[in-house]
Amino acid sequence: MKLFDSHIHLARLPQPLNLARSLHQAGFKYCAVACEPWEWTALDEIWEKAGGEGWLEGCGKAYGIHPMIAAKIACDFDKNMADLRRRLEKDPDAQTGEAGLDKRYEGYEPGGVQEEIFRAQARMAMEFGRDLQIHCVGDYGRVIRILREVGFGAGAGTGVRPDACVKRSRPVFHRFGADAGIVKAGLSLGAIFSIHADSFRKKATREALALIPAENLRFETDADESFVQDANETPQQFAEKLVQTLSETINALP
């Protein structure tokens, strides 16, 4: 089975360079997501070294600002958005995000700083024709509304691009956990739904998964520092754990 993890935080994992080698040897491909400025830099360093060794064939990366840090970086908003723009310009294949809304963190209220930073990243994804990795804990309906307001879904399902020179951006609902109504709304925007083990917890989400066409499905581990249970695991053992976790998620889909 060919495995692709659509959302992994490589730079947050132990011995990431050696892990990249072990994942390459296992045939495990992924999108490495970096969701705050220090992580962007760390991922770039890993990418330069691992890419030179040929360990990243079939892999990609994403740069974004997670809602958990939106309030903290708001004072440097212009600087961080300019840095994000430079990284997307440098890598024409990089996705945008992880971006979105999370009710557990400051600035979640309508019109708050989380929404401001999410809108800015959504617009940037549209401008560059990049997929947008979306984090949502709270209000999927508000996320859908914002995506529509910035232009996602224009021409979706019609075979017509807004600009023939620019790839159409797609929302990627990371660690998807909503219901059938959001699936239908997301499909109208050309969305991808990234399935995590947690996606099977709620009955409404389990039922909604049956409505998603196979071409709109992805699978993920969302592995970060919280995924580490044993500090003594070798990169090879950790790679095996990732393979097992992603395989179990894929096989859990009805």
Rank of each mutant, 00 (worst) to 15 (best):
E207Q: 12
K241R: 14
G97N: 04
S194N: 10
K29V: 12
F152T: 01
T158V: 11
A82M: 07
V143F: 01
A223H: 06
S226N: 12
E53M: 13
F152N: 02
K79F: 13
Y108A: 09
F118P: 01
D131K: 01
L13G: 02
V243Y: 05
P162E: 11
D222H: 03
S226V: 11
E36N: 14
E98S: 05
A71K: 10
N18S: 15
A94F: 02
R161D: 11
R218N: 08
G111M: 08
E116T: 15
I195R: 07
N251D: 15
G129L: 09
L84Q: 03
P254E: 11
Y108N: 01
M81S: 08
E248Y: 09
R123W: 05
G51W: 05
G181F: 07
E39H: 07
F238S: 02
R85D: 14
A156G: 06
R104G: 00
K202S: 11
L187H: 03
G100A: 10
T158S: 15
M126F: 07
T245K: 11
V150W: 00
P213G: 08
S199T: 13
K103V: 13
I73T: 11
N232V: 03
E215A: 14
Q121H: 09
L17P: 00
A34N: 04
E225G: 11
D78F: 08
W47V: 02
